[in-house]
Design a protein around this nucleic acid. Structure first.
Lengths: 148, 148
DNA sequence: CTCTACAGCCGGGAATCTGCCGGTATCTTT
DNA sequence: AAAGATACCGGCAGATTCCCGGCTGTAGAG
């Protein structure tokens, strides 16, 4: 359980982060392992919680979310439940990081229009001061963590 | 190609964002479609670029990246190529958003230790002023965009 | 109104993949 | 040296995916 990952495990993680639907036979081929050995390692990684799941990646602009923004929320209070409830209800809030510094939360928010974004910001502003920056572009194709 | 998505498409996206490895037979069952019809829709979504890929989700702390930070980079220059090269080389930089406002870039950075983070910040600081906030926790299980 | 074209869906069968089993080699422990 | 543990391989049964032909409902042309 506390075992560390070897080079093969890292290769497997790299492959599955690039293509989560890679068949185990092909995965085995790429990491120079038989399909069953590769399967066993993947299962182990899943059971250990290293791989937490598999997700389809959706192009936000292709589904109507044309506006992406980073919102920093200064939340002076200590009662975080109402905010967490909002986060759970609003799927437009794609990511929420609680951070050090003046701004307790950094959110990534998707909206279909400026009006939509404004409404989301208004909801968030109930909790504290917000700082919003629109996102021009994602500069990176996600590849996830690699071997340190 | 410019076609909009119907409710079934949204259901498919929701299911595949929750579990990208859902078998097409089970997917069809969940959205009340035959396996072949579900397959056809998924293929169409992939071909249209709505689904851009599938990824395994990796727990950063389980693979040794114990430190997560949000770094904002004020980059006054106009030559972005060197920065982009760094982003491509450093897989610790998980995400890079180019934004409006004083800070041109907002980065999500993973590191194995404070020393490692410091080194990354130093590399980034060559390009401009940085503001770094450590991340206590991810508050959200990713579920991706849902029907607007 | 009818006919044709087309899009979406269904079912079936071939090819492929997954999950499970037993067997082998290597390394550690006793 | 023997016993045990670990990681790997090959093979097979069952499940899944892929591809095909056929069916139905809608839209547009005649």
């Amino acid at each position: 359980m506390t075992e560390s990952l070897d080079a093969t495990d890292w290769s497997i993680l790299a492959e599955l982060q690039r293509d989560g639907r890679l068949p185990l036979t092909e995965l085995g081929r790429r990491v120079s392992l038989s399909a069953s050995a590769a399967t066993e390692r993947v299962k182990r990684l899943e059971a250990a919680g290293v791989i937490t799941g598999y997700r389809a990646d959706v192009d936000l602009t292709k589904v109507g979310f044309l506006v992406l923004a980073v919102v920093r929320l200064k939340y002076p209070g200590s009662r975080h439940e109402p905010l967490h409830r909002l986060l759970g209800e609003r799927s437009e809030i794609l990511e929420c990081l609680r951070t050090t510094g003046d701004d307790c939360y950094t959110l990534k928010v998707a909206a279909t229009s400026m009006a939509h974004l404004e409404q989301l910001i208004n909801e968030l502003a109930q909790f504290g001061g917000t700082t919003t920056n629109l996102v021009y572009s994602h500069t990176l194709p996600y590849r996830g963590p690699q071997r340190p």
